[in-house]
């Protein structure tokens, strides 16, 4: 007998292998995920294995849905990520894309902060739709996350971040994603957090305008608790606008560094 997790529930099984277990299963499994890995191969079952059998086109109940959505996360990784507390300051091109990626990754606690509403010129790079025009970005993003992963704890605040409120807004978070637009605001937030929140890591974006090589965008561990993602040169200006590909590459650098930090990895 092996004690395994099957579709999120602890199960004792006399099946010796994954394929034997699959044959005993009451409905057809179109997708088989074994310890976070989708496979058609057979594996011997052992205690502690995570198995998910997914039938395509069938809407599972709430508890089963959560476990099936987590099936592609490596189990030990998922527990840490689920406990993670991340705040995103600014929900523009960087922040909106970071929020979507962290939600897909299963980061358990997200705090979304922006003062603005979605307007048409945002749609060239930010993760919003026509249906969001005029909505607060915080509400539009919370709505998307609800559609991506409804099992996360998402808090929002529609407010302009200032020198005065930055620390009280963000203290206690494991990581703050700085995703503002103006360089003065970026500097203000980074300085305030590094000075007053010594346990919070800050992952910033700087330099992602235009259509220069995507390979120039990288993650740099700049200070003890501070990382910069971007080419650190290409500012947004007339003739060098912000475009979806490089902004999204930069956001992905930020999201990956945040994930690494939640997993206890400090190297860039």
């Amino acid at each position: 007998m092996a004690s395994i997790m099957l579709n999120g529930l602890p199960v004792q099984t006399d099946a010796k292998t994954l394929h034997q277990l699959q044959q005993q299963f009451p409905y057809q499994a179109d997708v088989v995920i074994y310890n976070g890995f989708q496979t058609s191969d057979d594996f011997p079952l052992k205690d502690g294995d995570f198995v998910a059998f997914i039938q395509k086109g069938v809407m599972p109940n709430q508890e089963e849905l959560e476990s099936l959505m987590c099936a592609r996360h490596t189990p030990a990784v998922h527990q840490k990520v689920k406990a993670g507390r991340v705040a995103i300051a600014g929900l523009g091109g960087l922040g909106s894309n970071v929020a979507v990626m962290l939600a897909r990754t299963g980061v358990g606690h997200l705090f979304l902060v922006d003062f603005d509403v979605v307007e048409p010129s945002n749609l060239n790079r930010q993760s919003y739709y026509i249906s969001h025009l005029g909505m607060d970005k915080t509400a539009a993003m919370a709505q998307q996350i609800q559609q991506i992963n409804p099992f996360l704890d998402v808090k929002t605040k529609t407010i302009r971040v200032t020198q005065e409120n930055a620390v009280s807004l963000f203290q206690g978070y494991d990581v703050v994603c700085e995703a503002f637009d103006q360089p003065e605001n970026k500097a203000m937030l980074v300085n305030a957090l590094l000075e007053h929140c010594p346990h919070t890591a800050v992952v910033s974006g700087s330099g992602m305008a235009g259509y220069w090589s995507a390979n120039d965008i990288k993650t740099t561990h700049k200070f003890q608790k501070f990382y910069v993602c971007g080419d650190q040169q290409s500012g947004a200006q007339a003739g060098n606008g912000l475009m979806a590909p490089r902004v999204t590459v930069c956001a992905a650098h930020q999201a990956n560094m945040i994930l690494r930090l939640l997993l206890g990895i400090e190297k860039e």
Binding site: P183, V190, G205, S206, G207, L242
Partner: peptide
């Protein structure tokens, strides 16, 4: 000294 100098865009 380590200095980071931000450029605009996000």
């Amino acid at each position: 000294l380590e200095i980071v100098s931000f450029v605009g865009g996000g």
